[in-house]
Design a protein around this nucleic acid. Structure first.
Length: 987
RNA sequence: GCUCAGAUGGUGGAACUGGUAGACACGCAGGACUUAAAAUCCUGUUCCUGUUAAGGGAGUGCGGGUUCGAUUCCCGCUCUGAGUACCA
């Protein structure tokens, strides 16, 4: 039989599913390997051809690792909470759970069509209560934890309570809010339960905080910074404004340093690590206090100093002004009567500016003088205090010291407002712009004159410390992550409120189910959709559980007496990243209802060995996941500091659009004549997107095009060679300049060639290619190999179906190796020849090397070469072909399973059979065709024994007539012989 | 602006540690088979020059450098893509 991919693929997909071929469980006898894909959000559009790229790569890798004797965990699931389902629900009233279910089923069908070796018994869905029960549980652990900087890890809140009971709060080294109270143990014990709760909230790793948020009125929700682009929502492009709101937050900043350091120990693409480093934004510098003139400098008088953060404390003698953010709390008290109008106007202008498009004028310098002065703590100089919007309230202290000679923004500011620009390094060139270099010796710099950068920095920090006006400090740009959405389709937060304070529900009450609502919109009073749920209240039970008693301290939990009273639940839901921040652990033990995963299983599977996904998650998912992982490790629930050992970014698949060119008449009116791409310059044309599925190798199927839209029914085409099609409606035949032909399309010369452009893949551009269509036409094995053949996995590239035929032909050729001319299965049991063994071992080695370095495209080429060679050798030796089947099976599993069985092996054993062992002996050659170059230019080649030493080679070639003739009559100056590589003769 | 990645035939790409640039595939051209087409098979295909040829020359974004030898290493520049955006 010829290669019947449809029947083969269906039957093996069925076999794998029925036999659970890829089910993986803890097996101490084998080394484990965890291959993870970023799980998809099941959108209504289904998979397009770009999605499977990473899945195919990871599947090849997973299958390869099984052949190499590893116990491979390769699961798949769905990140199924999210906005689109909710938007759809708002429009149609359909419950998001229902849409989600439909979409998941479609995804599953599409995934199954591609023959992935997923262990579906471990599927997860973030929106299922069995799953989000544990997302809520992790939230509770975060709520019950604080970050102890002394031990540098998260600890149970009970250890904090113990400390508060024993020592002054000022001696507790915690990551916490800035407004924590300064408490003595006696103060603490005098506080009532609610006061204690309020205070503890400032330490918890998830906490309520009034924060300025990106509020998107159109979406009715708060957006994360990375969901806002240029003041508009990334999704939908609605305007976003700043709004103050009580929000759940995650104290990710506690982990800033560990998140940064951890990057050094993981094998991730460098650009991605760089993005995370930038996001964390560590800067090492110093805090310096500038005293304000005419204010009493008391130790407790915070109004009398301005604290600045600087990374160039060495330049402190070059300070000629201070700038504070317009939002800075001291602005009002610093503003003098005379300056009041200026300052107020400026603040007003700033506010307007932030509402407008702030992005557009970054370079404009603006500011206003407060009228007050501060003094330089080291030089004692009197320096003016300004406000300007280039200083951000949210970073550092919201105040900077202006050093015009070293910082370009300060330079521009000083220039505009005629403030002094002081040279402080002897090598500084500051006529035109600031010079931030650290070279040279300090001048005009008091105690550090004559010193270099490093020495001066240390000296100044020491001096500042000594006189109590400064200290070394590390700042991070990364902010705590807001953890709440005013949305319906997300995990409910397992919290209720009593007297405005949040309390956790009990662990045994999990999951807190998402309630039904009548509409998926905010309430009239502006509360999130959950506010619509009827009878959705928390009824506190009288006794805290023993575990809670231990964790929170029994005293704190004395609210039980008012049994029967109902409390409001938290009405916001968790953000999209909650469920995806720990899902890989759930795969290890997906159906456990006692724990998020059994600790023995976590101990076995440990971490993800290979993670494949897009780089768009660099600062979202991949950062939050690392954060939660570290937290879970601190509490002893998991064992690894980093969750994803190796990560590969698959490139984005862009769309590739095709165009037809409609000729416009003299008045610019459309016609029904279309001109081929090569000739369009001769006409005035309008380019129109045409469905890429009617185009093959950029040649339009004109008949399909005519049927596409009624208005193109009578379309006339001017072909690439200038010929014109004329429609004869009576005969329904097409004429070429009077010559009748039956079928227009196949005549090769008369082709209508479409123009192309790389764009986003989208329905409106008619450039979406669905994997289903390609599977239907060529089969999954062809599509799998073609997607790999397209180029390096990491590279972004436009999708282009040109060339898929070549891969399909290859698989047929491969199939033919096992069959005679009449397609009867036929293999020979004769011993293989040297040439056949060479081909086989070449491919064994090549595939091993390629898969290990994720170079799947080159393996596909090598397979083609191997099959071409074996075809030329007319080889059908069982020993050779059987090994080839194993090697190819990760790439094209269906055809290989079929052939494996035809070769007489037991069905289903292929997936776990050992990978053939490479034997270098088969590649050894005793001769080599040396290229001979003269002055580095290859001229000829010569066959020589590889046993010859360079000296002997040199002797031979200098006698060789065919080589001497290139010498131009001269004697060679030098001969370079690299054994087995090259001969180069310098004339 | 800053950071990172990249640039090789008509196209996708290969060349792994500096050693025959263009593997493999598409497309195209020519041929075989066929009534014809599809499919399949064979041959050619970097560019320029040369009557087909033999041969000669140029060539991996541009300009330099190191080297017997550079797509590969170094310096400078151009362009493309991604990330980031007043971060003190």
């Amino acid at each position: 039989m010829d290669y019947q991919f449809k029947q083969i693929e269906k039957s093996w997909q069925k076999f794998w599913a029925e036999n659970e071929t890829f089910k993986a469980d803890v097996d101490a006898s084998k080394p484990k390997y965890f291959v993870l894909d970023m799980f998809p959000y099941p959108s209504g559009a289904g998979l397009h051809v770009g999605h499977p790229l990473g899945y195919i790569a990871s599947d090849i890798f997973a299958r390869y690792k099984r052949l190499k004797g590893f116990n491979v965990l390769h699961p798949m699931g769905y990140d199924s909470f999210g906005l689109p389902a909710e938007q759809y629900a708002i429009q149609t009233g359909q419950h998001p759970a229902k849409t989600t279910e439909t979409n998941i089923n479609r995804y599953r069908e599409q995934l199954d069509n591609l023959g992935f070796s997923f262990d579906w018994s471990k599927e997860v869905r973030t929106s299922s209560p069995e799953y989000y029960k544990w997302t809520q549980w992790i939230f509770m652990q975060l709520f019950n934890s604080w970050y102890n900087k002394e031990t540098d890890k998260a600890e149970s809140i009970s250890t904090l309570i113990a400390k508060l009971e024993a020592i002054p709060s000022s001696e507790i080294n915690a990551v916490c809010d800035e407004d924590v109270l300064n408490l003595l143990p006696s103060d603490w014990s005098n506080m009532n339960a609610e006061e204690k709760q309020a205070e503890l909230l400032k330490y918890r790793l998830t906490f309520l905080k009034e924060s300025t948020v990106n509020w998107c009125a159109a979406l009715g929700t708060v957006l994360a910074n990375d969901e806002v682009k240029d003041g508009f929502s990334e999704r939908g492009g609605h305007p976003v404004e700043q709004k103050k709101m009580m929000q759940w937050s995650m104290r990710i900043s506690a982990y800033a340093e560990r998140l940064l350091q951890g990057l050094n120990n993981i094998d991730w693409p460098e650009p991605l690590k760089e993005m995370q480093r930038n996001w964390i934004g560590k800067s090492v510098g110093a805090m310096v206090s500038f005293g304000i003139e005419n204010k009493e400098q008391g130790a407790r008088n915070k109004d009398a100093i301005i604290e600045v953060f600087t990374t160039r404390v060495d330049t402190i003698f070059g300070v000629s002004f201070l700038v504070i953010a317009p939002e800075h709390e001291l602005v009002a008290s610093l503003t003098t009567e005379e300056q009041k109008e200026d300052i107020e106007n400026y603040i007003l202008a700033t506010k307007k500016k932030s509402e407008l498009d702030r992005m557009s004028d970054v370079k404009t310098v603006s500011g206003a003088f407060t009228g007050s002065y501060a003094s330089n703590p080291l030089s004692g100089d009197k320096i003016p205090i300004w406000i300007a919007d280039y200083v951000l309230a949210g970073y550092g202290t919201g105040a900077v010291m202006g050093v015009p000679s070293g910082d370009q923004r300060d330079f521009l500011f000083a220039q505009k407002f005629h403030l002094p620009i002081l040279q402080i390094l002897d090598s500084q060139k500051i006529e035109k712009e600031a010079d931030p270099t650290k070279e040279g010796k300090f001048i005009n710099s008091g105690i550090v004159d004559g010193m270099g950068y490093k020495e001066a920095s240390e000296a100044i920090v020491n001096k500042l410390k000594e006189i109590g006006v400064g200290y070394g400090k590390i700042n991070y740009r990364m902010r705590d992550a807001i953890f709440g959405r005013q949305r319906y389709w997300g995990e409910p937060v397992p919290v209720y409120f009593k007297n405005g304070l949040p309390y956790l529900i009990k662990e045994e009450e999990l999951p807190l189910l998402l309630p039904e609502v009548d509409k998926y919109l905010p309430t009239k009073s502006g509360e999130p959709p959950l506010g619509r749920a009827k009878d959705w209240k928390y009824k506190a039970s009288p006794q805290p559980s023993p575990k809670e008693r231990e964790q929170i301290g029994s005293e704190v939990l004395s609210f039980g007496e008012d049994l029967g009273e109902a409390y409001e639940y938290e009405l916001s839901t968790m953000p999209g990243w909650a469920g995806s921040s720990w899902y890989w652990y759930r795969y290890m033990d997906a159906n456990n209802n006692q724990a998020f995963a059994d600790s023995d299983k976590i101990a076995y599977w440990k971490d993800v060995d290979l993670y494949i996904g897009g780089s768009e998650h660099a600062t979202g998912h991949l950062l939050y996941s690392r954060f939660w992982n570290k937290f879970l490790k601190d509490l002893g629930f998991v064992n690894e500091e980093e969750p994803f050992k190796k990560l590969i970014n698959q490139g984005m698949i862009q769309g590739r659009s095709n165009f037809v060119y409609m000729i416009l008449d003299v008045d610019g009116r459309p016609s029904h004549t279309f001109v081929s791409n090569g000739l369009k310059e001769n006409y005035r044309t309008l380019s129109l997107h045409v469905d890429v599925n009617m185009v093959e190798n950029d040649v339009l199927d004109t008949e399909a095009f005519k049927k596409w839209r009624p208005e193109y029914n009578d379309a006339i085409f001017i072909f690439e060679d200038g010929e014109k099609s004329i429609l004869n409606p009576e005969k329904e035949h097409v004429f070429m300049e009077g010559t009748e032909v039956k079928n227009l399309f196949p005549i090769s010369k008369h082709r209508y060639v479409c123009g192309t452009e790389v764009e986003k893949m989208s329905k409106s551009k008619f450039n979406v290619v669905s994997p289903d269509d390609l599977v239907e036409r060529y089969g999954a094995d062809t599509l799998r190999m073609y997607e790999m053949f397209l180029g390096p996995l990491e590279q972004s590239k436009p999708w282009n179906t040109n060339g898929i035929e070549g891969v399909f032909k290859f698989l047929r050729k491969f199939w033919k190796l096992f069959h005679d001319e009449n397609f009867n299965f036929s293999v020979s049991d004769e011993a293989p020849t040297k040439a056949e063994l060479k081909t086989l071992h070449k491919i064994i080695k090549k595939v091993e090397d390629d898969v290990e370095r994720f170079s799947f495209n080159t393996s596909v080429s090598s397979f083609m070469i191997a099959v071409n060679e074996l075809t030329d050798l007319k080889s059908n030796k069982r020993v050779i072909l059987q090994d080839l089947v194993i090697i190819l099976s990760p790439y094209a599993p269906h055809i290989c399973e079929e052939l494996w069985q035809l070769l007489g092996n037991e069905a289903g054993t292929l997936s776990y059979t050992p990978f053939p062992i490479f034997n270098p002996d088969h590649l050894i050659e005793n001769e080599f065709n040396y290229p001979v170059s003269i002055n580095g230019k290859t001229k000829t080649s010569i066959n020589l024994a590889l046993t010859l030493e360079p000296k002997e080679v040199e002797e031979i070639i200098l006698k060789e007539e065919a080589i001497i003739k290139y010498f131009d009559g001269k004697y060679p100056k030098k001969v370079i012989v690299v054994k087995g590589r090259i001969i180069n003769i310098v004339i």
